[in-house]
Amino acid sequence: METLLKPSLYATDGTLQGGRCTCGHVFFPMQGHGCEVCGRHGADLQPMVLKGRGKLLSSTIVHLHIDKARTAPFTIGKIALADGPVVRTLLVDPTREIEPGTAMVTALVPAGAGENGQTILDLRFTPET
């Protein structure tokens, strides 16, 4: 049995839970506080499923990290999603930086076990093969 670590942010098919304003601005994650571009809120902000693909802008290996829950080394990538927003998160491969411009896709990887022994999956990015 598998569950998602952050089901409010992504789905089991690797898509991301973003949003779109009637002004056209696409954002991630979905939120109802208000549009960062025009300030519209409420019904003007609608959920939008964002494709789990994009282009790598940069990546870096983290050698030291203060939070013991995150064991270094790991790799952080900055990805411009095909739908617009730029996100930063972990890459699947913790050991190498990736060439900017590389096409990236999401992948769900095991990130621990839940109370009932089920695998908890978290979203990462990895080069498209």
């Binding site: 952050k6 409010s8 942010l9 994650p29 939120q31 506080h33 802008l57 940069s58 990546s59 870096t60 983290v62 990290h65 203060i66 939070d67 829950a69 995150r70 790991f74 952080i76 900055k78 996100v87 930063r88 998160t89 972990l90 978290d122 979203l123």
Partner: peptide, 18 residues
């Protein structure tokens, strides 16, 4: 009130390393 993918993994020096 908004969650994020892994901001806890991105220290200031990691932001500037990118």
């Amino acid at each position: 009130g908004m969650d994020n993918l892994a901001e806890d993994a991105i220290a200031q020096f990691t932001h500037f390393s990118l």
